[in-house]
Design a protein around this nucleic acid. Structure first.
Lengths: 239, 239
DNA sequence: ACAAAAGTGTTTTGACTACACCCATGT
DNA sequence: ACATGGGTGTAGTCAAAACACTTTTGT
């Protein structure tokens, strides 16, 4: 099978799709584009598009994000491969295999449509329904994955700007998980994990709202959390 | 980009590659095939091959496993998508995007070569080096993923036959992690996790070696472990 | 009798929970 | 003054680590 004429088979198209997540006003938002062409013209979809002959899926993902939404050279963009969707029939035109990514972004800039996308917009996660193709499923998988990875990795800092307060970091967990966390315990846990965050030598944040100014932290070199920061075990189902 | 002539671009080939892992004689083994054709003829590689026009990656993975190694209708085969490798140049002939899977198998049957594979063989993990293509990396990624998933999922039972003893289950952890676990604590932990294992009503296994006969258990309905069964945090590095 | 593997019990340690409390700032 | 968010202290609880011990088999 490996020694094989490159045109002997029906060609596959390979695409990337991106579930770009961010936090705005304390709610999880996802970046959607309005499709300008058939199929699904006028419907909302995840940004994405075809791989070019000389690029990897990761490269294509960054390029498509820039083309379709104007988010180029975004600092702090965390890209993570989710999985590949390959079921026949997931695109009505032809056989398309899509490598899906979850992307996390702090401080979301305003996107603008471009390329095939008539428009690009941050949408609250709960309102992102009835997307084109199988993008509802991809988005749900992305959210599950991100929620799970908060437990045992340092991924949460990818939602925060370069310098952040522990309150902001806690807000990431609370927003993504939809649960409240005890502040004293959270800060002890985070500070006790070597390499999770490290204090910024400069001064504390001054204003921004009421209350005592908070100390600023940067993301540390660690990537995994040992021991993990666990959500409350889900009640009522067999684990 | 989406409204697009299917022949406008250089076609991509899409393949699957499988890192099939099992335990034999207390050591982690991986299923390798000897390549019969160029490139890399005579070199060992992970089993895999091209997607057919009407099958998903999961379907193709099972088909290729049967074709190249004779492992068809294997009971208890656990297939799990790892990630997709898409770097240009990873196949010297043409552009190949490969969806990699990790597969776990209990009671490994003897494989036999077939299809493109001159031979198929179980190989100790440590000796599986210098594989064709980027299969060294895929194999390492599979091992990392499986090791990590033992911590917070019930995946370990996928290495065990339908009915197994807690000693065998503990051996899975010890072999994959390369650490010793305390038997009393391990059994308490497993039995305290609802749905991880459930006792088999029948009698205890009689012989098999010296020592007291062990009770038999089946895999339960649970898929995740809350709280997780943690490896000792790696010393000497910042988490 | 002894080795080997299964299974039970117990003490100690340490982490997480759930609070109460103080601090610094804006209005 | 007081509300708001940052930060510290502490007692109770519960799970896991460590290890001693009993049980049941094969040789």
């Amino acid at each position: 099978m490996r020694g094989y004429d490159k045109h002997a088979f029906e060609p596959f198209a390979v695409t990337v799709d991106l579930a770009v997540l961010t936090l705005r006003a304390g709610a999880l938002h996802v970046l959607l584009v309005e499709r300008g062409q058939e199929p699904y013209a006028g419907r909302w979809a995840l940004p994405g598009g075809f791989l070019l002959p000389e690029e990897s899926a990761e490269t294509a993902a960054r390029r498509e994000l820039a083309e379709e939404t104007g988010l180029a050279d975004v600092t702090g963009l965390h890209l993570e491969q989710l999985r590949t969707y390959s079921e026949p029939g997931r695109d009505p035109r032809m056989r398309v295999v899509s490598v899906a990514f979850a992307a996390l972004l702090p401080n979301p800039p305003e996107p603008h449509g471009g390329g095939d996308a008539a428009e690009a917009r941050w949408t609250p996660y709960e309102q992102a329904r009835h997307l084109a193709f199988d993008h509802d499923r991809i988005l749900a998988d992305a959210r599950d994955r991100v929620g799970a990875k908060l437990e045992y990795t340092c991924l949460a800092t990818a939602f925060c700007p370069a310098e952040f307060t522990l309150g902001e970091l806690q807000g990431v967990y609370e927003t993504v998980w939809g649960t409240a966390l005890d502040r004293p315990n959270f800060r002890r846990k985070v500070l006790a994990t070597p390499g999770f965050v490290e204090p910024v030598p400069g001064a504390a944040r001054l204003t921004g709202g009421r209350g005592k100014p908070a100390a600023l932290y940067r993301a540390g070199p660690a990537t995994t959390l040992h021991p993990p920061l666990l959500r409350i075990p889900r009640e009522g189902r067999p684990a």
